[in-house]
Amino acid sequence: MHVLPYLVGAYLFLTGCYGLATSRNLIHAVGCLAVCQSATYVLLLAVGYRDGATAPVFSDLKPGSRPVVDPVVQALTLTDIVVGATVTALLLALVLQIAKRHGTVDPDELRELRG
């Protein structure tokens, strides 16, 4: 029993968190959030893996002839990717407006509120 794929997911998540906490640029921070999210893809796909299995698509595979990986986590990963992409787009739009209104994308310089 080995746990390396799960640990890769955990490592990716922590790397993203480190980047988020130390980031001096909001665009970079959005990228770090994407890294955090990719950790969940790795974890989900690792949970669903089965030794010697193939994709759960039966257009060219006789049902029952080979083991297939867990389709539920694959569908969850797809949902995850879609939500991740939309969140990234929304955050980048926010960063764009911050850069226009405040003239900076450094979170440490964004101290005071401005109307």
């Binding site: 949970v47 669903g48 893996y49 083991p67 990986v69």
Partner: peptide, 20 residues
Amino acid sequence: ACLELPGFGGSRHPYGDRAV
């Protein structure tokens, strides 16, 4: 938490089997 997860590549996927 990773050490407590079911082993990687295991053959027990009850939800996956039902979904298929």
